[in-house]
Design a protein around this nucleic acid. Structure first.
Lengths: 232, 232
DNA sequence: CAGCGGTGAGAGCACTGCTCTCGGCAGTAG
DNA sequence: CTACTGCCGAGAGCAGTGCTCTCACCGCTG
């Protein structure tokens, strides 16, 4: 229905020198938005560059001026999705709240974002769609939620005294502010968060977990204990 | 290269009355095998019914006598994959070994199966590929590893006395043999297992976890404690 | 004013999933 | 032994895909 989203596409009116670049940015934005819309509606597998072009009001070959390939389009969507979860999680954390409340808020934020954007969630935390190439430019964006969890642990985590011996398992210098014995549990908790949300979204809890929100809270609480967040 | 895998396809020699059905079963097997081969080589997205047909030595339309659609083909592969992990995990467990050894063996078996069959792992534990329909016939096969873990917990798990209050979160009667307070930790551990293996396979541990095998062992051990397996 | 470069359109190639029709052969009924 | 029924593979065909190439247009720049 929404044909010709770009009304002034070849007829860009005169404007300050940036006109050219602005038009380009707008077209790129329109393409990405439409792509994200289709991704959300029918999933990554059904995302077609041609139909994006149709909906945006140009012919398929024209979008190749803006996106190198379908895979590149997906990669851009991946980065945007990582940023979106990250942003949502960061916004949910209130640094003045008690540690466990912060922790739970982040877990809940990730879950609710996933429920709202299942296809995008699948895109970033499900199986890598384009071949096997894990696109390198996604790595920085991918870490945001992990770093957020780490920040909470760094600030409030209390390590038990009888730990040790996990040297050489993780990268040196990972999570600098976190107590040495808590680093591995923190990574495990980060994994647990996305594992749990993923299992819910991908249907593994069908006929298993009834109250998924409460389940996530319970798992979050156990994870909070494992990273030494004070109970009360 | 391997054209005409079915040498005696239209020329099936006379045999006991089951001939017809046998030929059909063989052709079906050949199709599924070739499909699994291609899935392993290039991933689910690249699996093409036409190229399966080509390699198996028939024309594409003929394959539709055996599989209703590409999605049905994938569904069958999904069930086979679930069974394969399940079988591997069950084989790895030695019921006479100490509880934690059994536990660790299962975790390791799932991981090594995943490393050997990343595309199949992604197919079943990654994002659901065909549209959104979670095929119902996969549900029984999907539970095998979970039930295996539950069996270990049922036999050796010792519940702490100060637990309770997780009623209504999980399905009633889930994991009948397991102590009530251990059911939720068991589900969480099951999630953690596949979350961890998935994160490794899907590249999330890039630049994070160095020694992945040791990491899995550590996580498995923590999970073992959470479900009350004795330390020694 | 001339030309360069970015842009969109269109045709085209090779491929996909899926459908339909047709001819042949197998197993069975008479 | 003959004739029929039903399964099966081949082939053509439709609609759609990703991607490439060429061509014409026109604004911006020299």
């Amino acid at each position: 229905m929404s044909r010709a989203l770009l009304s002034s596409c070849g007829t860009m009116s005169r404007m300050p020198p940036g006109t050219r670049a602005r038009a380009r940015a707008e077209t790129t934005r329109a393409i990405l938005d439409e792509a994200r819309r289709q991704l959300a509606e029918q999933g990554a597998a059904a995302l077609s560059l041609r139909s994006v072009a149709r909906e945006v009001g140009m012919v398929s070959s024209a979008v190749y001026r803006y996106v190198a390939s379908r895979d590149e389009l997906l990669t851009r969507l991946i980065v945007e999705a990582y940023d979106a979860v990250g942003e949502r999680a960061e916004a949910a954390r209130d640094p003045d709240a008690p540690p466990r409340a912060q922790w739970r808020a982040v877990w809940r934020a990730v879950r609710s974002w996933g429920l709202e954007h299942p296809a995008e969630y699948a895109l970033i935390y499900g199986s890598p769609v384009p071949g096997y190439a894990a696109p390198a430019e996604t790595i920085p964006a991918a870490g945001r939620v992990g770093l957020l969890l780490a920040a909470i642990v760094a600030e409030h985590g209390v390590a038990p005294t009888d730990e040790g011996g996990s040297d050489g398992i993780l990268r040196d210098g990972l999570l600098p502010g976190v107590d040495r014995p808590l680093v591995l549990p923190a990574i495990a908790a980060w994994t647990q968060l996305f594992g749990t949300v993923g299992f819910e979204l991908f249907g593994q809890y069908e006929n298993v977990v009834v109250d998924r929100a409460a389940f996530l809270d319970a798992v979050a609480d156990a994870a909070a204990s494992s990273v030494g967040l004070p109970s009360r």
